[in-house]
Nucleic acid binder design. Structure first.
Lengths: 139, 139, 139, 139
DNA sequence: GTGGTCTAGACCACA
DNA sequence: GTGGTCTAGACCACC
């Protein structure tokens, strides 16, 4: 269910958060559903329990989950709420990247074509966390 | 000329590289033009010369500048060449971010509107290095 | 294990890289095996940790190792992959040097005799499972 | 007559020496022939006279030229003498590179074929001083 | 514990 | 003057 790229440069605890967020966004996890325990998940992913704990803690302060001591951790919000929350940052990032696209000489028509193509395609596929792409690009 | 955000998460030497890339893209620096010396720039930015040197070496292996010990450092390519080089990565990044936008529930019309807005605005060197924005990912 | 010539003109961090490449070529280090920590090796070689770190970073951008902050550094490729990668440059260098040999008046028979002599001598620590050596696949 | 690659990593004064050695080896300059004056050559190559002077000084201590104060600098040896002098180092280098070739998995037959090919081709062409070949090879 | 970054100050070769 | 290398010591994020 949860995929961690050990070789990725993004911290494992962030990858875990992203994974759970994705599970919520895709409807695989709903509000008040329980997450696996820290030790369980740590064993399953062969990852240091401290790292899992840090991820859970991070998600809790981010308001994505809530923890009931002695009971476990649970999803704190619905897919829609999560979407609402991500929108401003997603838009901001989109603006930056679009600006860079322009800067780099990509025509507006080409940019719009890309947008159309992506919105037309079926929502599927996890990608990102591109560990060690030879060309260490930025933005 | 060059702006560094000491508090940013992105290393100073990468910020320096981004700054010089921007100067090339905007035409402020042309091929074979000389960069300020390591010590000069270090003093100007109030940054340790070692860090500047690291940035220069980084840019050299990236093929953006070439350094002649005893002579100085010089731009290695034209704005167009730099654009060509950045395009694939910029497009890839754009696709990822657009995908995320869709995922987060932003309508295609809204996305296209953003694109139009950005392409309509006058091209001027805006800087980034968004210190602590939630989306930390770079490569 | 690792030998550094402090008085050599070639930088220490390159010597370290050469040493590790040799260890991979001879089969002493295999893919995904862990390298000594920066501080450990620094103490062992009586060299500043910064220099070791620089060597490791160099090897990482060269694709020879990968580093996971907080976990350690690991060999990124097999002996065969490293051989494949070195072949073109080794051949190019060989051509240059042979050309110079001719230029300097060494007879072809003498050159061929040297080749025979070197290929006849024991190669020292070749590993087994190196399968087909002439393959032209992958990097 | 003399070609300097300003972008090369090998010092200019060494390039100058190599150039003059080549001129001797090819017979373009004979023993006791005069070299251009420091200032003349400096102007011709658009290079700092100090650098030319350093090159001449280097060649003098190497016994390749001799200087008569107030008269100029002159070739000190014949092509054959120069060849004799270069042979040991050329052979040594050849051995190293051949060893590396073997190490990297190139078959002996292939090495011999390269030797034959180079000895068969007409002696021509200056190469080397491979300024900024992306792959900064060693050995 | 690990690697990544930065500072401070030094020495070298090259032009 | 330039860039290249190294040392010493520090702080950080990550596991």
């Amino acid at each position: 269910m949860i995929l961690i790229d050990q070789r990725s440069r993004v911290p494992i605890y962030e990858q875990i958060q992203e994974n759970f967020e994705m599970l919520v966004l895709t409807g695989a996890l709903k509000r008040d559903e329980q997450l696996p325990g820290v030790r369980t998940l740590a064993k399953e992913l062969a990852i240091n329990p401290n790292t899992i704990a840090k991820a859970y803690q991070l998600m809790e302060v981010a308001g994505i989950i809530y923890s009931l001591p002695g009971r476990g951790s649970f999803i704190a919000l619905t897919a829609d709420e999560l979407r609402q929350r991500h929108r401003p940052q997603a838009l901001q990032k989109f603006r930056e990247v679009t600006f860079h696209l322009k800067e780099v000489g990509v025509a507006e028509t080409e940019a719009r074509a890309e947008v159309s193509r992506i919105y037309a395609s079926p929502s599927e596929g996890r990608d990102k966390n591109d560990s060690r792409s030879e060309s260490d690009e930025k933005i």
